[in-house]
Design a protein around this nucleic acid. Structure first.
Lengths: 357, 357
DNA sequence: CGAAAAACTGCAAACGTTTACGACCTTTTG
DNA sequence: CAAAAGGTCGTAAACGTTTGCAGTTTTTCG
């Protein structure tokens, strides 16, 4: 695990002083009960809004709790309630614009409904993914939200997903019996290709991976559009398992060293599109002058000045919110079936696509 | 809270079928004890590696646990152990390149040491920040790692920080009696300014906020360098409370509509530098041809093609790792004092600064 | 062989809650 | 005015662990 601190030499610490921290023994129900002269069951009822308690004593107790700084101990509570109000969020790496935006909305929405989220990075391998899911189970989370690492994730954690409500995010699971909410990748790719077509492009290159379900679906959308519109299909497959700017750049360098027999590129990922941009700049290939470029995901970087990448937006906020709603439904209503929720991606036009004349 | 799903109309769901999920009653110590024909205390000891147990029975029990799929219930465990092995991570918004990178390393490092992390967004206001910290206390976290919202955070959550080990990240707290680990903002700004000076620049504009401690320190570093080098100081203050590309852009538009009497800009934040870039492009001001630009933070976007922003790197990974180390020390050794750990930022040269001739 | 030591295992308390049940007191009702 | 009804509160069990202590068995060694 890459977590050891390097260049310690470059750090320096200053010890400043000592706080007068009192090791606070947190106050319990029993404490306020004693102070109020009632049993601690009564205090519990006062806090939980039980009807079987006098409104005068309730107020008195609540006020006392406030004064004494009582906060209910959630782990004790979870113990008896047999639920933790905790959901596990597992993402390949939170260090990633797409994931972190998802995580943001997940946490906000979850908390708005009384849940806290436990964050786990599942990267880089399937073993760790399995480990963190198992860990989450031990923590007794009420449910799990997971962005799968690859198409193998389902098999990888199958043993646990029937022990706790689980919904997959972002990655389509196709025919597997699991709930998920994701963008319609096929349609997004279709929209992108068709947009390029409408701009006059007839030779469109598909650039990217095809060996995860998500990317397979994107490729399918591209192919469907090509068939409908009578275009020839052209692929540049990536052997890389993770798409990144660096990988896209490497691939694009190769690509641009050969004759250019296309007028537009559909990159299956914004990251790879960004890599293409770098390679193109290096080779003095004008985008969109010589070739148009469209990406997929609409990560924040695409909106940057000088980048202005035209792309397909994955509605991250909606994916996150729908996912926690779906999970809540499973948790709170014990809903048993599995649901596939597919959200529409949208075209966001910026500066890297140009009409052919 | 901005969490309601919009454009539901654009979504559609497909119900596919029903899983044959058995509502699994999770197996407890008592269960495996019965199966093994021993008391559950013995099972507990077998798992926990207690010395007072026969190695033959231990192996037998461990094997049995494996077969029965037993995983220890952490909430029950936490109950008696009086610790949860949980640390709370609170950041203004995880939806932010800087925070998410920090969070990534925090989670990795924490888990490597047996802790799980509970993630909370504290934004946008101080009230919510207080709320989530209180929540974390109720969850009985062993410690809290927090990236403060503003310089008011310390006062805001002071009532809780002495109830649980806490270390602040990234924001310098100056003379306040709280542990933190952060980059040396003053020095970073000093380095940036001096670099510009060495490139021949004599009129350097400080661009950004100054009303948070962090930015005040950066301004001080700039001022110190100016004094030492005999440069005139020039400020463009932002009235915005949060720095973002949009804010930087707005400010820069105003700026560029007036005569340009500087040859370089030190932006107190990469985000604002990105905003400057956009405004400059709009006005056809050549960067770095006409004016050099340096940022602060080294967020991932700065490394993008066509951006290539020269900047000062905050060692996020080191900050994260040192912070959890410091927190662990407080938790596990009950260390009482407070420590300020200050890490050296470094200059990363890219394309937006040019030597004056 | 016998006793002390060592090795192993079980009993039971404790952690801080929630809640079913029952007890008590007050009010209503016929 | 007695009984039923309703309201209010306390008792105690339960949740699944860990661990001090005591009890039992085995080993060791004089």
């Amino acid at each position: 695990m890459p977590v050891a601190a390097k260049n310690k030499a470059e750090t320096f610490a200053i010890f400043r002083g000592v706080e007068e921290t009192v090791p606070v023994k947190s106050v319990t129900l029993k404490d306020v009960a004693k102070a109020a002269g009632v049993s601690y069951a009564t205090v519990s009822r006062a806090l939980s809004g039980s009807p079987q308690i006098g409104s005068d004593t309730r107020e008195r107790i609540i006020k006392l709790c406030d004064e004494m700084g009582y906060t209910t101990n959630y782990v004790a509570r979870s113990m008896v309630m047999k639920k933790t109000d905790l959901i596990g969020l597992v993402v390949p790496t939170i260090d990633n614009a797409f994931m972190s935006e998802l995580a943001f909305y997940v946490e906000m929405s979850a908390r708005a409904h009384g849940y806290n989220v436990m964050l786990c990075n599942s990267g880089p391998d399937l073993k760790q993914e399995k480990t963190v899911v198992k860990l989450l189970l031990g923590r007794q989370v009420d449910g799990i939200l997971i962005v799968p690492q690859s198409s193998k994730t389902y098999e990888n954690i199958r043993a646990y997903t029937d022990q706790v409500p689980t919904v997959f995010m972002s990655e389509n699971l196709r025919d597997q019996p699991q709930s998920y909410v994701a963008a319609d990748n096929t349609r997004g790719a279709y929209i992108a290709t068709k947009y390029l077509y409408e701009l006059g492009h007839r030779n469109i290159l598909y650039f990217g991976r095809r060996h995860t379900t998500t990317h397979q679906l994107r490729a399918e959308g591209y192919m469907k559009a090509c068939q409908e519109l009578g275009l020839q299909q052209q692929f540049l497959d990536s052997e890389y398992s993770r798409s990144s700017i660096a990988n896209g750049y490497e691939m694009a360098r190769d690509l641009f060293s050969k004759p250019i027999d296309y007028t537009a590129i559909f990159a299956s990922t914004d990251s790879s599109a960004l890599g293409i941009l770098r390679a193109a700049d290096e080779r003095h290939i004008d985008i969109p002058g010589q070739v148009s470029l469209i990406g997929f995901d609409n990560i924040p970087s695409t909106a940057l000045p000088r980048i202005e990448l035209t792309t397909i937006d994955q509605p991250k906020r909606e994916i996150a919110i729908q996912a926690v709603d779906m999970l809540r439904d499973k948790i709170e209503n014990g809903t048993q079936g599995y649901v596939h929720q597919i959200l529409l991606p949208t075209l966001v036009k910026r500066g890297t696509c140009k009409a052919l004349d």
